[in-house]
Amino acid sequence: MNELEHRLSSKFPKARIISETIGNIIGLIVLAVLFWLDYYFGWPIWANWILIAVLLFAVAGTIWSFIEPHYLYRSWRYQISNEYLQLSYGVINKEWVTVPMSKIQSVSTSQGPIMRVYQLRSIKVETMGSSHVIPALEEQVALELRAKIAELAKLKEVDE
């Protein structure tokens, strides 16, 4: 099958890495505080083991968070037609999703502080049973897409 038409904004990896790094730094600080508490109050040995395990995961996750956004950006594609919204994404597990426009119940855009710096917006599409997020589009593209999906999703099938 041919690749879908559109990609995310090329600023996505940068924005994602920055926001994830901030999150990771906060997480590591919390972990450091826990280690200090462990040392200071002499927590039982199993608490120590759990903290070490969490630290290992946190370090692995931090390293991964620097690698993943590039690959995620490369894997992300979306496409809309009059009838369907199609998405495909994923680094380790690849996923292809097809949602009929008539089943979409709401569409919204949102923007966090870092995305505002980069003038990006994410789009969230909700159906009766699921929700999908297109993580980062240029502001203008996102607003147009939202308007278009909202317009196309207005049609409802007789079935309901």
Binding site: E95, W96, V97, T98, P100, T127, M128, G129, D159
Partner: peptide, 16 residues
Amino acid sequence: RRRVIEISYSQSILQR
């Protein structure tokens, strides 16, 4: 088909 409101397919590394 008309009762299905969404479909997807996926591949893990091994499946690829």
